[in-house]
Simulated scan of single mutants.
Amino acid sequence: MKNLSLFEKIISVILLLTVIYAIYVFFTDSSYFDTLVEEDGFYENLTSAFLFLTSFTLLFKFFKYQKYYGALWKVGVLLMALGMFFGGGEEISWGQRIFNVQSSEFFKENNAQQETNLHNMVVGDVKLNKLIFSNLMSICFGIYFLVLPILWNRSAKMKKLIDTFGISVARPVHIYIFIIITALILAPIDHSRKWEIWEYAFALIMFLIVYNPLNMKEIFSGEKNS
């Protein structure tokens, strides 16, 4: 925590307190816990909010620093911003329930929850949520959090490639927070929707990484990328 700024410490404390709160409610009021982790519930809305915030932070940095970097940097930063924005929209089904918008016939027939989103789509007998957004994304997140920082630190070629595409790399403190929070969520909570809390933690930590990545000087410094 000593490597974090005051703002980052505040955000990290908020994460810890909200996770501890979820654990407390799980053991003291199961019906209220169900409400917290339901669709468009407290934690799902927080997930969406931090994914959008991460996306907007990337866009802010893109417009601030894009003149200093090449086309690949622009593509990388914009793709990451788009990915975070897409995730935020998917979490709340693009505001469908907020604005009381009915799903089209296509989504009613092909979406497991009859919602306007892609991650609950069913192709044949295959649920995309399980195939892509659970299995595949879990592998990608593992590579991003655990492998990418090692490659950035130990391989000059990989470091240059990662920086060229403007990919924000997690600092050790981000990884420690992620591991601790994951253990806090998965160990004590025995509930099918505990992953809603984990997704919220992931979104908040992604915001922290983008806000102040390990390679801040290399990709968000205002210096020419050589």
Rank of each mutant, 00 (worst) to 15 (best):
2 K>I: 12
4 L>C: 09
11 I>E: 14
12 S>H: 05
12 S>F: 07
14 I>V: 11
14 I>G: 06
17 L>W: 00
19 V>M: 08
21 Y>F: 14
23 I>V: 14
24 Y>H: 04
28 T>A: 12
28 T>Q: 12
29 D>K: 00
30 S>V: 13
31 S>A: 12
31 S>Q: 09
35 T>Q: 11
35 T>H: 12
38 E>I: 01
41 G>T: 05
49 A>V: 11
51 L>F: 14
52 F>W: 08
53 L>V: 07
55 S>E: 00
56 F>E: 07
58 L>E: 05
61 K>Y: 12
67 K>V: 09
71 A>E: 13
73 W>R: 05
83 G>A: 13
84 M>I: 05
84 M>D: 00
85 F>A: 14
86 F>T: 05
89 G>E: 12
91 E>R: 05
95 G>E: 00
97 R>N: 13
100 N>I: 12
100 N>V: 12
101 V>C: 04
105 E>I: 08
110 N>M: 04
113 Q>S: 03
116 T>A: 01
120 N>G: 02
120 N>P: 05
122 V>N: 07
124 G>I: 09
130 K>E: 03
130 K>I: 10
131 L>S: 05
131 L>Y: 15
133 F>C: 06
133 F>I: 09
135 N>Y: 15
142 G>Q: 08
144 Y>C: 01
146 L>Q: 03
147 V>T: 08
149 P>M: 15
151 L>P: 15
155 S>Q: 11
156 A>M: 07
157 K>N: 04
158 M>H: 15
161 L>N: 11
162 I>L: 14
163 D>S: 13
166 G>N: 09
169 V>C: 09
170 A>N: 13
172 P>W: 03
176 Y>M: 12
187 A>C: 04
188 P>Y: 02
192 S>D: 10
194 K>V: 10
194 K>S: 04
195 W>K: 11
198 W>P: 00
202 F>T: 15
205 I>N: 15
207 F>R: 01
212 N>G: 03
214 L>Y: 14
218 E>I: 00
218 E>G: 03
221 S>E: 12
223 E>W: 04
225 N>A: 06
225 N>Y: 07
